[in-house]
Write a protein that binds this DNA or RNA. Structure first.
Ligand SMILES: [Mn+2]
Ligand SMILES: [Mn+2]
Ligand SMILES: [Zn+2]
Ligand SMILES: [Zn+2]
Lengths: 127, 127
DNA sequence: GGCCTATTTGCGAACCGTTAGCAAATCCCC
DNA sequence: GGGGATTTGCTAACGGTTCGCAAATAGGCC
């Protein structure tokens, strides 16, 4: 049934993502593949990204221009601090946010189930 | 130069937004206008939303399907708790997040400049 | 190694939300 | 009411993403 093939396009795209700590668009990944003479269709890039997301190896976000971008990302629930200069992504723990659950309940009767957070600023190299 | 007209479409759209505490897409707003016999072009809805955003009366977010949605939103910097059942939006203060700035600096040398947060759960009516 | 079949790819066209161009309509102020 | 700047409506274009389907590939099995 759900047999899973390790194909050349998938290996190439996984390699690119794991060597990159910035969010990349599908088009950007496709461009990087072209630059190294690897012929992979853009639709395959999309399908592979979808596949990697389903496997929990990639996290996506929509950038301000409306383009979806992807980073290699695994591990427990956490958030990203994104450098506005170079785009570097740092993983950030979010235990501080747990406390907000109580306040939401008290003020609005709101039962907190999940949250999404993004931090923006400058990484150590760009500060 | 930047004279500003109060037109019928703008008044209609502002009224719809201020009477709604959920994020609405441009198409949804357009649909509501149709339902009340008001003929407004979809492109006018987009332009009005852009206009209201620039005036700081509307806040936008891209929903999981990639569609941009809009709520009436004014006041100081804050975040939104969105009910997963009915879509109702509560304004949430974020003083608790300020503390994270120090930790980011200490752990990653990251200088925090801004953050974006969304909370998901169930509002009091849907709990 | 060769065969076989399920899975994946490549290509192109279709899709869909959003933006742009431009003439006609509207708003505002005198 | 007249006149000029602004806004609207319509339609076509745009750009990222998804789809359909035949050709190619992976990998288990002789
Ligand atoms: Mn991560
Ligand atoms: Mn708000
Ligand atoms: Zn940086
Ligand atoms: Zn609710």
């Amino acid at each position: 049934m759900a047999t899973e093939y390790v194909t050349r396009p998938r290996a190439l795209i996984s390699r690119i993502l794991s060597g990159e700590r910035r969010y990349l668009s599908a088009a950007a990944i496709h461009g990087l593949l072209e630059r190294e003479q690897a012929k992979v269709a853009l639709s395959t890039v999309y399908r592979t990204l979808e596949h990697l997301q389903a496997k929990g190896q990639v996290s996506a976000r929509v950038d301000p221009a409306g383009e979806t971008t992807y980073v290699s990302c695994a591990g427990d629930h956490h958030h990203h601090a994104i450098c506005r200069v170079c785009g570097k992504v740092e993983d950030v723990d979010c235990s501080a946010l747990e406390a907000i659950g109580g306040a939401l309940k008290a003020h609005h009767g709101f039962v907190l189930e999940d949250h999404a957070v993004e931090f923006f600023g400058r990484c150590s190299a760009c500060a």
